[in-house]
Design a protein around this nucleic acid. Sequence first.
DNA 1: CTCCGTGCAAATACTTTGCAAAGCG
DNA 2: CGCTTTGCAAAGTATTTGCACGGAG
Lengths: 131, 131
Amino acid sequence: MQQRRNFSAKREAIYSALASTKIHPSVEWIYQKLKPTIPDLSLGTVYRNLNVLREMGLVKSVGVVDGQERFDSDMSQHPHFICTKCFRVIDVPVGRNFFDANTYGYISDECGVKIQSHNLTFYGVCNNCPK
Amino acid sequence: MQQRRNFSAKREAIYSALASTKIHPSVEWIYQKLKPTIPDLSLGTVYRNLNVLREMGLVKSVGVVDGQERFDSDMSQHPHFICTKCFRVIDVPVGRNFFDANTYGYISDECGVKIQSHNLTFYGVCNNCPK
DNA sequence: CTCCGTGCAAATACTTTGCAAAGCG
DNA sequence: CGCTTTGCAAAGTATTTGCACGGAG
């Protein structure tokens, strides 16, 4: 196992669990998912490793949804849709990127800041929820 | 004072405090700001009233920044810039709207959802912070 | 031996809530 | 009087952290 390569068995499992789903899970969800397989897993470990993975740039946060932070292992720049009723998080496929380096530069100058990234989220009601 | 019109004195003060600044304050900031003038103000009241104001559509959340929710009384659709070092929140002026009804409709169809709003946030380092 | 990773429980941090008292029309 | 608002403190929820132990090189 690639130890000394930033991956412990549990960190690997946490990353895999996240990468294996499209639901953009919360810490709790990952914990519940792995607990049966790894009985001695603790919630703190999931929190800690998600933060490590984030620092390593392997994972990013979708933001806090209904009180819990949600994560994504898809590091490509893409918007999300969040259902305000059931709090489902869905990837929004985009042909082109809405914002490129030029846009960043333009707005950076405009505001006197240095933009490094952005987050685009749409809100509404998904098709599983009653209108 | 327009009582029975959804405004108690404290709610009014909370709204005014929020509307009087561009820093997109947190609950705590509003509380500290008003406390000297209104000594018997309690933190719970600020929380409660911001939620009421939000439901009334007079206020919206910028999101959770560094652990605290930040608010904005400017209900116009506009992006924000958040400094990842000092957590300053700045309005981003935009000539046109990035997303109009057509875009909403297009993406809604694409994802099988009904988009009602969106949130666009840029991240980076502001000009007050060291590179 | 030395680190890194971990369980566990305690500690934080922010926000919400129950309740009785107070305010307003 | 009836409904809204509030202070206060307690409760709730999510997340972080201290510490000592355990495993890998």
